[in-house]
Design a protein around this nucleic acid. Sequence first.
DNA 1: AATCAAATCCAAACCGCTTTGGAACCCTGA
DNA 2: TCAGGGTTCCAAAGCGGTTTGGATTTGATT
Lengths: 343, 343
Amino acid sequence: MNLKDLSQKLGLSPTTVSRALNGYPEVNEATREKVVAAASRYNYKPNTRAIRLATGRAMAVGHVIPVETQHEIVNPIFADFIAGAGETYSKAGYDLILSIVPDGDEARVYREMKSRGNVDGVIVHSPKHDDNRIRLLHEIGMPFVVHGRATGADLPYSWVDVNNRRAFRRATDFLLDLGHRRIGLVNGLEFMDFAIRRRNGYTEALVARGLTAAPSLMRSIEMTEGLGYQAVRDMLALPDPPTAVLVSSMIIALGARRAIEERGLIMGRDVSVIIHDDDLSYMKNGGDVPIFTATRSSVREAGRLAAAMLLDTIAGTLPSASNRLLEAELIIGQSTGPAPQRP
Amino acid sequence: MNLKDLSQKLGLSPTTVSRALNGYPEVNEATREKVVAAASRYNYKPNTRAIRLATGRAMAVGHVIPVETQHEIVNPIFADFIAGAGETYSKAGYDLILSIVPDGDEARVYREMKSRGNVDGVIVHSPKHDDNRIRLLHEIGMPFVVHGRATGADLPYSWVDVNNRRAFRRATDFLLDLGHRRIGLVNGLEFMDFAIRRRNGYTEALVARGLTAAPSLMRSIEMTEGLGYQAVRDMLALPDPPTAVLVSSMIIALGARRAIEERGLIMGRDVSVIIHDDDLSYMKNGGDVPIFTATRSSVREAGRLAAAMLLDTIAGTLPSASNRLLEAELIIGQSTGPAPQRP
DNA sequence: AATCAAATCCAAACCGCTTTGGAACCCTGA
DNA sequence: TCAGGGTTCCAAAGCGGTTTGGATTTGATT
């Protein structure tokens, strides 16, 4: 059943039927009702391909996920972010096109997307420091929103981000207030923008109290359980071990906890741990009583917002460089406590 | 730059240019070379939307991921599976359309995809026992491939699956050979087809040696660290605790290990653990020396295969009910050892 | 009753490609 | 020389919608 068939059944022109269904004003209300009724009776759905060609819009948004051959691949937070974005898209009738591209091939993919016209805009994932994708997308005139920020980018752009600096500043302050003085940081890889911001928040809080961040208490690792374990194990083996650690993700924290318990220590009593919790749906930080004290911010919500912002940008109803900074909530769990007294 | 512009620059008709670029035989080789050269010089890429309308093909594949409101959502293995599938699609020039739909809304989404024509086929994720999506897709005539199998489905269909039964049978045999007699199973939710098969493999192996699976040693849980911890902790607290456990995923295993270590036991010596390892890119089971003994099968590879099978099905070059059963490899790690002697 | 504007509908062009059904040309063999 | 068969190219008709530029009808106003 296509538009022509439907219009013939109704004895109307395709023009009128199209307008009736798309809510244009130049059609009699009685006619419109007849058309709508017929459309639902014959289960008519306009062909997406035809709409796209006729309107010149792709009605689709691209998510280009770089697969870094050397580092962490297909970061699990993508799944939740995309789930959030997908909610927004499906409400707006947009498709979500997922594109997994080998590292370094992104420029080509973006260019092709532009010239082939199969997306109206893109979401940029996991920005690096001074990310060159921003310049590229500006150059080719593709609407985009960045999930995160790219410090050093000289051009204006839209983004949605968590206030990573403040979250880690606050978490560090919280530990300092509890009397901790030797606080470790197990961060993500620090060419990622978010990791740099987290470290800044952490050092800022220390410096504000006249402390300095000891290099031996700072690690920058891929976010895996195993590496988290190693990092914290090594820290705890230091002559002057930390009494608290800040870790950048739940998965690292699982390793951290293992290192702590392996040493016969108790998390929350002997060693405090604060995590950043992306509130991933398949990796919940406990229920009513969170296991880990955490700076929590839903990455899924970030996905919803970024998607909405992108759609508005495409529609032209949003200035080209808008942004939204989400604040993380400090959730007090069982993994933190007052600094133990020195024996 | 579109086809008309290009053809004018060349002094040829659009017909000829189109044919030259698409490799049709009715064009002089010299002409073809000229066309190809011009296309690359002017950086001409055919408009996807126009191709889709003209050919009647969507050049896109849908992955419909159900978001179960009650149970595990956005399963992290999707990410890797989709990454694998994406590789195949991009080589073939197909788009991957990701659709996150609330539970129960799938039928509507599939129907719409069919009538709107924005995909040529779909991959069905995480089939349940007697999954009704298979009947639906048959009914509406949408090509599809299932990742996994749906026992009880009466219609033929194509699938790619791991031999879960054999993997767990083999793992159980391995433990039995090591002298273990009380072997626990921490399985995924058993309305999922793969979980049922795993349990069958496990009980089969026990029965073959004249043992029976004790209900107290079998758990069916959502795959989280916390629930894995609880399940194994409870098992170890039994009067006659298991000396080995089979767990259905890496993430459950992290909890299992914690429960073991918390009891002062050593994994691999006091309690053996075998996991099923989907070989997720962001959750590696160690490197050269795997931490966990595992039945390993790359879910990413499964994605590649399923995608290829779907494209062939769409092209009509594959019988409508093909399948591919992947065997899992048994990887010996540090988490298994001979059954401890009873004191 | 004549006029004019608003309301309502339609024919046809258009989006940018593919594909059908020739047409023009060249070559070969009778 | 001319019929017949390849080659090589092209005009035009789709694909299934949207949108422009009227045409017709209706209703109110003078």
